[in-house]
Amino acid sequence: MALNTPQITPTKKITVRAIGEELPRGDYQRCPQCDMLFSLPEINSHQSAYCPRCQAKIRDGRDWSLTRLAAMAFTMLLLMPFAWGEPLLHIWLLGIRIDANVMQGIWQMTKQGDAITGSMVFFCVIGAPLILVTSIAYLWFGNRLGMNLRPVLLMLERLKEWVMLDIYLVGIGVASIKVQDYAHIQAGVGLFSFVALVILTTVTLSHLNVEELWERFYPQRPATRRDEKLRVCLGCHFTGYPDQRGRCPRCHIPLRLRRRHSLQKCWAALLASIVLLLPANLLPISIIYLNGGRQEDTILSGIMSLASSNIAVAGIVFIASILVPFTKVIVMFTLLLSIHFKCQQGLRTRILLLRMVTWIGRWSMLDLFVISLTMSLINRDQILAFTMGPAAFYFGAAVILTILAVEWLDSRLLWDAHESGNARFDD
């Protein structure tokens, strides 16, 4: 018995066209964080690309023209004298008006014999932002004059995390709450300039795509075929072959399989920071003279006294001054041990922890910024005066060393310790 099946006739004509040209192939790229070699397709503007294995951002879609970056830099340069030299806060102490600005706080630190601690604050609040705007201006002028731009481009990517104007702005709020127990506070004209400078700096850093600047100024022929001998440069993120001198053909720094002496430098910085954190938390970090009496505060006791007036601000200072430094030390110690013992479990967790400490590390400088600003506000000789204690130097040095330890660690070593050939990683 035959089955009668109805015929289905399409209502619209289906047209099949042959592909007349070869589909576009992607360029081969190595991930600078996990060293995976993959094919990167062509990316349009405002599109980002991520590593298929570790999800690290390979290409950032946010990109401004150099002219727009230069305009932002010149605007920031105009704001800087007002943000640093004009009063941020006014207080009335014992019937006398006192003005506080950024430069005055750094000068008070240096004047009291601790120039190293003052230079830490100076670099993060004044030096690094000033280098940022002058570097962008150098790129703008240098591109037109045919100057060598490689050193500036190499420095810009590392400079971003040292620009800490946003953290200093939080420190202004913390210092205001600490001082309000002794005097009446009012915002100064410099505060508005400083807030504007923070906003412009944040926007500029978020749109400063150094890798795209490398592509514009020093374009290189990408690798179009897969080759395990391809290496990625950690300076400019170019994937290719080393030249005859073993250097990256684009930025001219040595092109090595792994960062040289990464573990040794990381261990040295980490152990030194552990040693410095002990006096930083045991010795007094601030000293207040009130009517001839002397009151010393460690980091913890200062947080407890701050909690009596504002528990939320005390929580912020606790996280930045105690929780973050010790968390960074514990995480980095764990990561280094996992590399030495070739741990194969929990790779995803370790990668996330490394990215976390990379982002939060700079916030530990908050305590030094609060001390710097408070020193310029309260300084009335023996009637009422505020000065920093010996722990300030140890704390600042420990924070900087932990930042350097994270920067010096080559994250690809975590993958080397893991089993080879993993296309995915999980716990």
Rank of each mutant, 00 (worst) to 15 (best):
E21D: 08
F238K: 08
I116K: 14
F217V: 11
G302W: 00
S45M: 07
L276G: 11
P151L: 02
M365A: 03
R17S: 09
P81M: 04
E215A: 14
D416C: 11
T5A: 06
I96A: 04
L278F: 12
F318I: 07
S45L: 08
N209P: 12
R53S: 07
I172F: 07
L23I: 08
E212M: 15
H207L: 13
S420Q: 13
W107S: 15
G421R: 04
P249S: 11
R350M: 09
D227W: 14
D427E: 12
L401G: 10
D60K: 07
F333K: 14
V152H: 02
A268G: 09
H184R: 04
A405W: 04
L169T: 06
N44D: 06
R62E: 05
R355G: 14
V125N: 07
H237G: 11
L366P: 02
L149C: 15
L409M: 09
H418L: 10
L94K: 00
T374D: 00
A280C: 12
W140P: 06
S206A: 15
T374H: 01
R226H: 15
G146D: 05
L197F: 09
V275D: 07
S135G: 05
W408Q: 04
L23R: 08
W162M: 02
S65Y: 03
I58K: 07
F122C: 10
H237N: 12
M72K: 03
R256G: 12
H207W: 15
L283S: 10
D35Q: 03
L169Q: 07
L156I: 12
I106E: 05
T202R: 15
C266D: 06
S376L: 11
S309Y: 11
W140I: 15
V313H: 00
G20P: 05
V399S: 12
R53D: 06
E22S: 08
L156Y: 14
E42F: 04
A397D: 08
L257V: 12
M356N: 10
L384V: 04
P52T: 09
L276M: 12
L205E: 14
I58V: 09
Q180P: 00
G61Q: 13
I303G: 09
Q104N: 05
Y394G: 05
M103Y: 04
N310I: 05
L94E: 00
G389E: 01
V163F: 07
V232P: 05
I136Q: 08
D63W: 15
I199R: 01
L66K: 04
Q104C: 07
V179L: 01
M365W: 02
L366K: 02
L401E: 11
A70S: 12
L79N: 05
M332L: 11
H252Y: 04
L69P: 09
R247K: 07
P151Q: 03
I371R: 00
L336A: 10
A100R: 01
D416G: 09
T9Q: 09
P219K: 14
Q295W: 14
I131F: 01
L79Q: 11
P32D: 07
G188R: 11
Q55T: 07
I177F: 12
D166I: 15
I319Y: 07
C236W: 00
G421D: 03
F217G: 15
Q33K: 11
F395N: 01
F333C: 11
G346V: 14
I319Q: 11
L37H: 06
P279A: 15
G389Q: 03
F386E: 00
F123G: 01
I400P: 02
G118M: 03
W84Q: 08
R412F: 00
I96P: 03
F326Q: 09
S376R: 08
A405G: 13
F393C: 12
I351Q: 09
P279T: 15
I288Y: 01
P219H: 14
I360R: 00
G292P: 03
T358F: 11
L255Q: 13
A128S: 14
L191K: 02
